[in-house]
Design a binder for these strands. Structure first.
Lengths: 219, 219
DNA sequence: TAGATTGTTAATCGATTAACAATC
DNA sequence: TAGATTGTTAATCGATTAACAATC
């Protein structure tokens, strides 16, 4: 069963690209002009063929015996990830996590431009958080339409998440970055990316518990 | 090529379990005693067989024609994810993200007990953040050993991440929750879970860019 | 040239989905 | 009983890994 339209790029590959970018940025700093798959694979403890296939997704062409141009590869990966253009975003829910995201300057370098923030708490409305104005959540749809916002970032609680998603959809946004632990229902042309920290924590604690059990066999 | 010891549970399944838990908690509130895979699958837009296989991982046994006991299923999933026991944790790097994590009370319900925080900035050391004391990062290894800490949470910048990981390993921690965009090198018995927000953002913007291109064909 | 590395095709592996018998 | 649902085995699909020819 499929929740949305299927796009062509394999997600596991997509998720590895940002890490390649980090290695490449370091190489760029060290004035390294060319890099081979083998090198990147070693750095990241991956299979070289896998790296080559991942990079091929971006349309890069390498030179046998030489490798890929570091500068070109950085450009291609950024373009593939959509980090070469600006995305205008609204953030809804100025709690701890919302505030942290507003304060995380790094996102600017990925083209994420958080234009405004929204909250339902009157104590937060009218304030500025890391230079971003906080408005009443009621206004989110109207403002989003007026300002042609691309991305809605949901950092509200589970209860309000669907409601906020509906407002964002009404505001004609094209993508939702959802931090609330809730499976959102949206039209098929709206892209949802879930980023629940608890999922990641669950993977960690689950593996730790398993390893304790397995480990005990040998001790 | 493998970076660490392989554990038996399939990661995709593991990543779906927290979402099942959310549906189940809601059902519990509604005093619903039994639930079928079909129902959960519909709620989450997944294949029922997939849900059944995922749930089977936890060791739950259902009743044909009835389904699974909601209460029992919640317990089993929590136990499988390691959310039935307490994990003592240290957090290193009290920036925006670190602060947000310290303030996110929800994690307590997953058994995550953040005992202390660490930073290298003298202005932060000695302060309390959401009730958690901030110490100098130098002390992390010693304190971790003394207090038998299980998990180290890394919320420092890319540059310092490996250094902090080394200190945590010296402190005999068993798992690292790494928010820094850096592939950490640790001994094979230490479990690392990477939680880079930029990866998730990349998936979103990449899909949005692809969908724009594809979409334009039809417009 | 020789040899390292790319690009691509084939083989393997693992996860998802389909089919169906067992059960209450 | 009839039928919905579980549990499990088989088929399909997709991603990873291996093999190798092409290239500079």
């Amino acid at each position: 069963m499929r929740n949305t339209r299927k796009f062509s790029a394999p997600e596991p590959s997509m998720r590895r690209l940002p890490a390649y970018l980090h290695v490449l940025m370091r190489l760029l700093k060290e004035n390294c002009l060319f890099v081979s798959c083998t090198f990147i694979a070693q750095e990241m403890h991956l299979d070289p063929t896998q790296v080559r296939k991942d990079l091929a997704l971006t349309g890069i062409v390498g030179k046998p015996r030489v490798g890929y141009s570091v500068v070109e590869l950085i450009e291609k990966i950024k373009a593939f990830l959509g980090w070469d253009i600006q995305w205008n975003a609204f953030l809804v829910g100025v709690g701890n996590l919302g505030t942290a995201i507003l304060g995380y300057r790094q996102f600017r370098t990925f083209g994420l431009n958080i234009v405004a923030a929204f909250d339902k708490d009157p104590r937060r409305i009218g304030k500025k958080v890391f230079g971003v104005n906080v408005f009443s959540v009621e206004k989110v749809s109207l403002f989003a339409r007026e300002q042609k916002i691309d991305i809605g970032i949901i950092t509200v609680g589970e209860e309000a998440a669907q409601e906020v998603a509906d407002l964002l959809v009404e505001g004609l946004i094209k993508g939702i970055w959802n931090f609330a632990p809730k499976a959102l229902v949206v039209p098929p042309d709206v892209i949802v990316e879930n980023a629940q920290l608890s999922v990641s924590l669950g993977v960690l604690t689950s593996k730790m518990k398993l390893s304790e059990k397995e480990g005990n066999i040998f001790r």
